[in-house]
Amino acid sequence: MTDPHADLHSEHGALPGEHPGRAPNPVVKVHDLAWLEFEKPDLGKAELFARAFGFTTSLRTADELQLRGTEPGAPCVLIRRGARSRFTGPAFRAADPADVLRLAEATGHRVTPLPESLGGVTVDLPDPSGARVRVVSGTHELPALPEQDPPTFNFGHDVTRVNATQRPRREPVKVQRLGHVVLQTRKYRETLDWYLAHLGLIVSDFLYYPGQRGRGPVMSFIRCDRGATPADHHTLAVVLGPANRYVHSAYQVADLDALAAGGEYLLDRGYRRSWGIGRHIQGSQLFDYWRDPDGFLVEHFSDGDLFDSSLEPGWAPMTASGLAQWGPPATKDFLGVKPGRDAFRELRAVIGALREDNEFDFDRLRGLLKVAVS
């Protein structure tokens, strides 16, 4: 029997002349994601889901909602009241306060103060896809909150739990922190190179359409360059597609029991699982994907890979079966092909993209269609 996961792992590296996965002299090297910003018309509904998902509210006003995890630092998610639901952009944390000024001078943009509720300063830049990207420094530090109590495991004959039961409670998981965001763009290569050159990010893994490796990758999983200090396998992922849009964001939880029991709590309250539970290949995370009431895809994850700056990018074909080592098959909802409003919107985006001069052409469309059935 053929292993569908053969040749999909990141140990397979680049061929001569392929993208190096890093810029030789980036303007700065950001330390991490700081937060993500959204607009939504109903903050009450957004907060209700957020609490069930595992966030804690750190600020609530008539027009703004700030959500945090248990780890110290800035909020994970900022939601402002708006006429429609939309993602407005990511914010990255500068590794050094001077980097904000350095980035502003290199790009011709201004350093501006953030709202008093956040503190600090930002330089706001447009990426090639039009997303507003913030690099921030000097923000208020929220104190740590109590973590979820870890279970005590018996592994085979290595016994540490005796005369005691294992009963994870069905309650909201405690989100620890923001892990990553995935963005789709019509200008994949230009957008990738922009993040590498301006923010100093480096690629952990490239994916390419089967049979189209010679045309270059269509997705990259990108991490922060912290030198010898390990960083998440990806803080940002960029994927080629027919529309410039948010794909999903991911939030770390303690372990598999917390992830699974928290998922049962969400199901009990009528929320919709998109895909999971399983374990990814690129990044190795345990994952569980959900749709919030506004249709945004959000992920609980745990046990992800950490790489230092010495590892070079892996290369693998993009396939639906290659998204997970184990777990249920990727759903039509997760892949964006479930019949309905979102699929119709994506179809219209495909037609529009094919009429314009960008990287998403007919060959790329054929590659994407192969991925959906692979």
Rank of each mutant, 00 (worst) to 15 (best):
R22P: 02
A23V: 10
P24M: 07
N25E: 15
V28R: 01
V28N: 02
K29Q: 13
K29E: 14
V30H: 04
L33V: 03
L33K: 00
W35P: 00
W35A: 00
E37P: 07
E39W: 09
P41M: 12
P41S: 09
P41E: 12
P41Q: 10
G44H: 12
G44Y: 08
K45M: 14
A46F: 06
A46L: 08
F49R: 02
A52W: 05
F53I: 09
G54A: 05
G54R: 03
G54Q: 08
T56R: 13
S58R: 11
L59E: 11
R60S: 12
R60K: 13
T61E: 13
L65P: 06
L65C: 06
T70N: 07
T70I: 14
E71I: 07
P72V: 11
P72L: 04
C76H: 07
C76T: 13
L78F: 03
I79D: 06
R81K: 14
R81A: 10
G82N: 07
G82P: 06
R84P: 04
S85I: 00
R86A: 11
F87Q: 05
T88G: 12
G89H: 10
G89M: 09
F92E: 03
D96K: 09
P97E: 07
A98S: 14
D99V: 01
D99W: 00
L101Y: 06
L101K: 11
L103W: 01
E105C: 05
A106E: 06
T107S: 14
R110A: 15
R110I: 05
T112A: 14
E116F: 05
